[in-house]
Amino acid sequence: MKKPCILAGLCLAIGTASVFTWTQPSLSLDPIKVALQSSENLQQAEVHNNQGVELAEQGRLAEAIAAFNRAISVYPEYENAHNNLGLALGNQNKFAEAIAAFNHAIEINPRNFETYNNLGIALGSQGKFAEAIAAFNRAIQINPNDPVSRQNLGVAFWSQGKVSQAVASLQRARELYAMQNNSAGMEEVGVILNQISLPAD
């Protein structure tokens, strides 16, 4: 079984062939919103968060997790730190803890479709495919044009043996990747569709 990739936005395999794709709602060094920059605690939390990002990029996940937790302790409402914590935990296969982190981020901002996508991956990684499907569907409700959530929804359907629904979702994901001129995404979905069509061993 492949392991999830926190930085490359690559894939997490479920079973032998299924592929989920993580998204990165906040794994970046982008500045915080201007309206919030007056908060000394938030600025301090951003410093810890950015340290965590840098550590994660170096593969130092335990230290990154500690940095994200420091950010959260300074400013508990800092959505980025909760998201990044969930990604780092997911990359360590600590999916129950990742789910908790993503749920905290959703409590802070229930409109971030990427958080629902990552929550769905963590749920699917525990075999909770019905809950994962609900999370991916919520991501799609918020942003119908996101191919990653459609791709992951297809993988979750496939993992449940719902082949026709899987194929429909994956084909839509491929169309959306094509609209974005994302050849890597199109190719990835094509690989999954080919695996679905292969006869079982």
Rank of each mutant, 00 (worst) to 15 (best):
E77T: 08
A101L: 06
E63H: 08
E54C: 10
S73Y: 13
P110K: 08
Q92F: 09
E114T: 06
N112P: 08
E57V: 11
F113Q: 11
E40P: 13
A96H: 14
Y116I: 04
A81D: 01
A67N: 02
N109Q: 10
E63R: 03
Q43Y: 11
Q44E: 15
E114R: 09
A45F: 03
I99A: 02
G59E: 02
F68W: 05
I108H: 00
I108Q: 01
N84W: 04
S73C: 11
R60C: 07
N80S: 13
Y75D: 07
V74L: 03
E54A: 12
N117P: 10
N50T: 15
E54Q: 14
K94F: 00
N84C: 04
T115W: 07
Y75E: 08
Q58S: 13
G59S: 04
N41H: 13
R60N: 11
K94C: 01
L85Q: 00
E46T: 15
N103H: 11
N117A: 06
N93E: 13
K94P: 03
N49I: 04
H82M: 01
A56I: 05
I108L: 02
G86V: 05
L42E: 13
G59M: 08
H82T: 01
G59C: 10
N84R: 01
E114V: 03
E54G: 08
V53E: 07
S73M: 12
N49W: 01
F68Y: 08
R60Q: 14
E114P: 07
I108F: 03
N91H: 10
A88G: 02
A56F: 06
E54P: 09
N93G: 09
E54D: 13
Q44H: 14
A66G: 09
G59I: 01
A64F: 01
I65A: 04
N103V: 08
A67F: 01
F68T: 02
L42Q: 10
N109R: 10
Y75L: 09
P76L: 10
Y78V: 01
L87D: 02
L87V: 08
A98Q: 03
